[in-house]
Amino acid sequence: MRSLNLSILLAATALTGCTAMSASGPSARSIDSEASVKVAPAKDKAKSGVDYALVDISSTVLKYVPNVGAEGLSEGFGGGRGPIPTLPLGAGDVVQVAIFESQAGGLFIPGDAGSRPGNYITLPAQTIDRQGFISVPYAGKVPAAGKTTEQVRVDIEDRLANRAIEPQVVISIVSGVSAQVAVLGDVNTPSKIQITEAGDRILDVISKAGGLSASGEESYITLQRRGRSARVRYNMLVDKPSENIYVIPGDTLLIDRERRTYTAFGASGLNGRFDFEESNLTLSEALAKSGGLLDSRADPGQIFLYRVVTKDFLRNLGVDTSKFPTNDVPVIFRANLRDPSMFFAATKFPMQDKDVLYVTNSDAAELSKFFDLLNTTPAGTANLTGNALSTKDAIRSF
């Protein structure tokens, strides 16, 4: 009982100091007491209502951290190691048909043309219509859309076989609009790019569009194909050739810059949001960028990094993930910079976009703040009776 009274006395003394300082708004207690409705998590849940995992940074953790949130295109779309995609003709393409006969006097070559150089005729260039057909005299309407030039050539020769003298057909593409890829977003020349039979990969068409207009470190490529889409970092295409897959007609590439940032709070030299800019950051670099640790306040043994990871990451560490209902798990990574070896780990631990870095106050700093508050009390226990009641309510709230 005596210890409880002493606790109340100390708390009341501290609250007396509080009454001597001006407030910029209502107190937390008044906000809580005057609310019409209160929504709070169940008592058996964490105060925030969010379950999370605490992971101490170690050499084991470092093995798996770089793989968190890995992206890729090759698994979803393929095309990285396969053959060059074929480019069939399509509606809107302009083609030209030349027909050869083995001798004069046939269907297309008159009998008196024996002295002419070459027994062939060239038909006027024509556009494949919306139904996908071209017209060839004596062969009728020939389907072309969705077929290769070789397939159309064979079809025309078969149709003319009983009329012309050993007909041979050559088909040339004058201009193509069906074999195009749209490149949009943060490139210097957004446009539709005509792809070729030689095969064009993602980086090829980005180059034809003038290259990136933003930093490669912060650029992402979204590939849209036949109702599906996937997203990958530009640097992954450069670092992993298997991800630089072939494009096919009708693909859309959207290049966008995503500003990578992290936030720093607590006993660091600077608080706020910080840009990665054009480089990747490690934990040690992020701490330095945010002003390092304050000697007078920070606890170097309690550096926390907040991040959402997948269950696979925790399973690799041998963690039971059954307690987490979704695949995304909130994780707090802890670094103890009192351990000299942790500085080496901090130089290898990669930061990720939207990480939250928090540096806690040391126990000595909290104690110093308490005594500073006592020293600012003008009259000691002048309002002890009134503050004791407030202290009683505060204790009940715990």
Rank of each mutant, 00 (worst) to 15 (best):
V238M: 13
V238F: 07
R257K: 14
S219C: 12
T196F: 13
A214C: 04
E258I: 10
V247I: 10
A264C: 06
K147P: 02
P167M: 04
V152N: 14
I202T: 09
E217G: 02
G146F: 03
L237V: 05
G250M: 07
A214S: 14
V154E: 08
Y220V: 06
R257T: 11
I193E: 06
G250F: 09
I171K: 00
Y220A: 06
L160Y: 06
V169A: 08
E197P: 12
L223H: 08
P249C: 05
T222P: 01
G266Q: 01
G266K: 07
A161M: 10
D200L: 09
E243S: 01
P241A: 11
S219R: 05
L203M: 15
K147L: 15
Y220P: 00
Y262E: 12
Q151W: 00
R233H: 02
S191L: 10
A264P: 00
A179D: 13
L184R: 04
L212R: 04
E217C: 08
A145M: 12
S213D: 04
A179K: 11
K240V: 12
Y246W: 02
I248G: 04
R260H: 08
R260W: 01
Y234W: 05
I248Y: 00
V174D: 15
V247H: 08
D158Y: 08
Q168R: 11
T149P: 05
S242F: 05
V238P: 08
P241G: 11
D158Q: 12
G210S: 14
V238L: 14
P249Q: 13
N162L: 12
L237M: 07
V183H: 12
E166N: 07
P167A: 02
V174R: 15
I255G: 10
L253A: 05
N235P: 07
G227P: 14
I173G: 02
V205G: 00
S178I: 11
M236N: 14
G266D: 06
I202P: 01
S172V: 11
S219Y: 02
S175I: 00
R260I: 04
T261H: 04
R226K: 14
T261P: 02
L203F: 02
I206F: 04
A182S: 13
L253D: 00
N188D: 11
A209F: 05
I156G: 09
V238K: 15
I255W: 05
E166F: 13
M236P: 01
V205I: 12
D204P: 10
N244C: 02
A214K: 14
D155F: 09
Q194A: 09
Y220F: 15
F265W: 12
R257W: 03
A179Y: 03
V169E: 08
V247Q: 01
A264Q: 05
T263I: 13
I248T: 10
V169T: 07
M236V: 11
D155H: 03
I206Y: 07
S178M: 06
L254V: 01
E243F: 02
Q151Y: 02
A230K: 06
K240G: 04
T196S: 14
E150V: 14
L223G: 05
V187F: 11
S242K: 05
V177S: 15
Q224P: 05
R257N: 06
E217R: 11
P249V: 06
G146S: 09
E258A: 10
R225L: 14
Y234D: 05
R231A: 05
Q168G: 11
S191D: 14
R159V: 03
M236T: 15
I171C: 00
E197D: 15
